[in-house]
């Protein structure tokens, strides 16, 4: 199935080739976990980010537990400071 993933701020520079400005569609197997989806994004391991699925913030400990559905809106935010 295809899942829509949005990468905000500087994270957008790690979108797979051919993506739009900050969005991409990632193909994953049905029943895949969030952890597997994140592994498919070429984000360097030192880059920190926050994951939001359907407006709900996901804790890091739950990455391996959460199952992704085809209509999920997955958003990754960099933890930047304000100005």
């Amino acid at each position: 199935m295809d899942v829509s993933v949005t990468l905000f701020g500087g994270l957008r520079h790690f979108l797979p080739a051919g993506s739009s400005f900050n969005k991409c569609s990632i193909k994953i197997d049905d029943g895949s976990r969030l952890e597997a989806l994140l592994r498919l994004l070429p984000i360097p391991p030192e880059k920190k980010f926050i994951v939001i699925i359907n407006d709900q913030k996901v804790s890091r400990e739950d990455y391996a537990e959460i199952t992704i559905n085809g209509d999920d809106e997955v958003v990754l935010l960099p933890p930047i400071k304000g100005g």
Binding site: F8, G9, G10, I52, L77, P78, I80, G83
Partner: peptide, 18 residues
Amino acid sequence: EEMSRDGTLAMIDVTNGF
């Protein structure tokens, strides 16, 4: 780099998404 390129405006996508 990001701060030079996008300035503090980068935050708008973050807070809007959040």
